[in-house]
Amino acid sequence: MVTRHTLPDNLSNQSLRLDNQLCFALYSTSLAMTKLYKPLLDELGLTYPQYLALLVLWEHDGVTVSELGEQLYLDSGTLTPLLKRLEAAGLLSRLRDTADERCVLIRLTDAGRKLKGRAKRIPGGLLQAAHCDAAEALALTHQVQTLRNRLMA
């Protein structure tokens, strides 16, 4: 439930400044992060959403499309074309679950598993480009996750 808060007039004008908007800070930071990722992911032949899907699979191979969607906060309509491209690139396979044909299981191929080794340098490259150490990045990650969880509650 959203509670309405009124601000005193002197703060009301400040609240409408672009630089005081949390949403804009998150949005513009997301754009900047994606820009930093691009050259690193281009070397692997991946887009950022494909990289995210592979991160999940490198952690838990053999998930269903719906499980992957839950972890990435994406619906199957968004995931299906992404997964088809990864399958066409030979990085994963999609198979109907024999126990429940409504479910599609996603499994990494050998090439998909091998790509993990090449991708291991990406997090360090990002930290270096962001002039950020691992502890600071982890703290920021936890703060943003906490905010996301509050907004989704």
Rank of each mutant, 00 (worst) to 15 (best):
L46I: 06
L46T: 02
G124N: 14
L36A: 13
S28W: 07
V104Y: 05
A119R: 02
I106N: 01
K35S: 14
M33G: 08
I122G: 05
D100N: 15
P123M: 03
S30M: 14
P123R: 00
P123S: 08
Y51G: 03
Q50T: 05
E87T: 07
A53C: 07
Y27Q: 12
L44K: 04
L127C: 09
G69R: 04
L55T: 09
G90S: 04
L105C: 03
A134V: 10
S93K: 10
W58K: 03
L31F: 13
G45E: 08
A119T: 10
C103T: 08
G45F: 10
E43S: 07
L126A: 06
C23R: 05
P39Q: 10
L83I: 05
A129H: 06
L86K: 01
L115V: 09
D97R: 07
L55E: 08
L46H: 02
E136Q: 15
G124A: 15
G62Q: 05
T78S: 14
P123G: 03
Y73H: 14
L83M: 11
A32W: 08
R85K: 15
R113Q: 13
S93H: 10
E87I: 03
A89D: 10
R96M: 12
E136D: 09
Q128W: 10
L41Q: 07
L127G: 04
D42R: 15
T98G: 05
H131E: 09
K38D: 10
E67R: 06
A137Q: 05
A134K: 06
A129Y: 02
S76L: 10
L92N: 00
A129P: 05
R121C: 13
A129V: 00
K120A: 08
G77V: 06
D75V: 10
L74C: 05
L26G: 08
P49E: 04
A139G: 04
A139V: 08
H60N: 15
R94C: 04
R102W: 08
G69T: 00
V65Q: 09
E43H: 11
R102D: 13
F24R: 15
L140Q: 13
K120H: 13
H131V: 07
T141G: 09
V104R: 13
V56F: 00
D61M: 05
E67S: 04
E87M: 08
L126V: 08
E101A: 15
S30R: 15
E87Y: 02
L31R: 14
C103Q: 15
S66C: 01
E136N: 09
K84L: 12
L41K: 05
E87C: 06
F24D: 07
E101T: 11
L36Q: 11
D42Q: 15
T98E: 12
A88E: 11
S66G: 03
E136H: 13
E59W: 02
